[in-house]
Every structure is written in structure tokens, then in C-alpha cells.
Amino acid sequence: MQVSLTGGLRSAANGAETIDIEAETIRELMNKLLEAYPDMQDHMDPGIAVSIDGEIYRDSPAKKIPPNSEVFLLPRLQGG
């Protein structure tokens, strides 16, 4: 599965725009991401949101990631 990185997240993955990770849920994706790129911790502290096929998830680690979906990692949104 291809995961697209945005913003400052790329620097934590040595500048990569996309990375390949196999994961069935958001939780698994996050765990594998941290394993591969320990610098991601810096970004996980303020929070990361995951976009799956255009829908942004902030607090749904159990969310299943369907095969062939479009996956983006985004900063965790903040609102007023």
C-alpha cells in the first residue's frame, strides 16, 4: 500500500513523498511507520491525521484501510 506524506512529515522519512507500508488498520499503519521512521515520533506528539479515500480520521485507530485506498498522512487538524 502506498502512503503519501505531506508537510513536515516528509522530513521524518528522509524527504520521501510516498512510502510503502502494508497495514490493515490505522493503528497498524502508525506502529509500522514509527518502526521504520523513529523520527516520526516528533510529529506524532502534536498528532497525525490519516486521510483514507478523501475522509480525514483523527481519532479512529481501529479504522480499517481497504485495499487500494488512497492514504495520506496529514497534521492533526486544529479548529476554532
Binding site: G7, G8, R10, S11, G15
Partner: peptide, 20 residues
């Protein structure tokens, strides 16, 4: 500064740079 490669060594008022 967070988000730049390679990691900077000097202190800065720029806390982060993010590209989309």
C-alpha cells in the same frame, strides 16, 4: 526547525517548515 532536511543544529525562531 522541524521539517527541514538535514536536521539543523542551530537554534532558530522558525519552529517548523511544512510543504504541501
Amino acid at each position: 526547525t522541524r521539517g527541514v532536511d538535514p536536521k539543523p543544529t542551530k537554534d532558530s525562531n522558525v519552529a517548523g517548515v511544512s510543504t504541501f
